[in-house]
């Protein structure tokens, strides 16, 4: 049963990867990377159970905690750039 779920997650990973490769905008790629992150958390948890090694859940926990940081950095990146653009227009 875990196998069915992990195959569903893997299929979603493939779909997200397709989205990341197709684009069209850069944000779609960020979105795909984000989806990939949460799918990795789920895949790790499910395979930990599939293998009967629940002590490896630490890894999924690490990802669940750290995942958000990358996307927040993206937000800050765009924010800085739009501010810089505004400054350039002011001058």
């Amino acid at each position: 049963m875990y196998i069915v779920v992990s195959i569903a997650i893997l299929a979603t990973m493939v779909l997200a990867l397709t989205r990341a490769l197709m684009g069209p905008s850069v944000y779609d790629r960020v979105l795909a990377a984000n989806v990939f992150g949460t799918k990795t958390v789920m895949l790790l948890s499910v395979t930990a159970f599939l293998y009967g090694r629940p002590d490896f859940l630490d890894l999924a926990l690490a990802y669940a905690l750290v995942n958000m940081v990358g996307i927040l950095a993206v937000l800050e990146f765009f924010q800085k750039r739009s501010r810089r653009k505004a400054e350039l227009e002011d001058d």
Partner: peptide, 28 residues
């Protein structure tokens, strides 16, 4: 962005090959 996807895939791979320590490094 694609590099971050690469890193996720790599971590999942390490994990499936039972290398939890390396996978945790990749995750961190």
């Amino acid at each position: 962005m694609l590099t971050s996807i690469f890193s996720f895939l790599m971590a999942a791979n390490f994990f499936i090959l039972d290398a939890a320590d390396v996978a945790l490094t990749e995750a961190a």
